[in-house]
Write a protein that binds this DNA or RNA. Sequence first.
DNA 1: CGTCTATACTTAGACAACGTATGCATAGAT
DNA 2: ATCTATGCATACGTTGTCTAAGTATAGACG
Lengths: 113, 113
Amino acid sequence: MVQRNPEMLRGTVELLILTTLRGGPRHGFGIARWLEQTSDDELQLEEGSLYPALHRMERRGWLESEWGISDNNRKVKLYRLTSRGRARLQSETEGWAAFAAAIGKVLQAAEAV
Amino acid sequence: MVQRNPEMLRGTVELLILTTLRGGPRHGFGIARWLEQTSDDELQLEEGSLYPALHRMERRGWLESEWGISDNNRKVKLYRLTSRGRARLQSETEGWAAFAAAIGKVLQAAEAV
DNA sequence: CGTCTATACTTAGACAACGTATGCATAGAT
DNA sequence: ATCTATGCATACGTTGTCTAAGTATAGACG
């Protein structure tokens, strides 16, 4: 999903999807486009990662879906956060902050050498 | 390697190892302990991840190793950065910065909603 | 009307990497 | 003599991402 190191995405895809849905229901394709635009093309979620992730998250009760019609008159599956999804978003956000801070500490400590 | 979401490590293990070795040669166990301490226990690199990663990175020419004796009189395998490893460290560091910045943008954009 | 393109969802299979668990070895302490 | 901490190695299972292929259809364009 990212150019330089595709492995880096692991574990953040769900955070990104949850975050995207914070602003209201969206369909899969729309989620991917929003992430791409918002990250200035840095984050590219492939379909083979996106849809399985959505199914997984729905299975876990973080998301709910329903079929609908998009602005451009297309059949789309709209996903929305459940309350469990909202809680998960919270903890994932905290987890990311802690993780990023930890990496930051390590990088800084090594710089000091 | 991290508590909340073990998947988040993916792709950063090599960055972390390269970073640790920036300050000079170290052995595997020492790398893990340094990372743990420097990150205030946030980052815990398991042996089953650490050693395969070291072998992988040596195979790719980013590291060199030689057997030696540690301060506490133990046989250890000391790893050091090669020039290719140093270059890789540079690009991984940049990759991380870009990635973290992208995530930051997304989180911020969603907050604004 | 037919074709092309962009949108939209799905899923099988390959691949990579992390963790669990286990095994081995040994220095120093008790 | 035994125990603990240190130190390295690796088989195996799990997980998640990507590639690739397939299906479907709206709208543009001729």
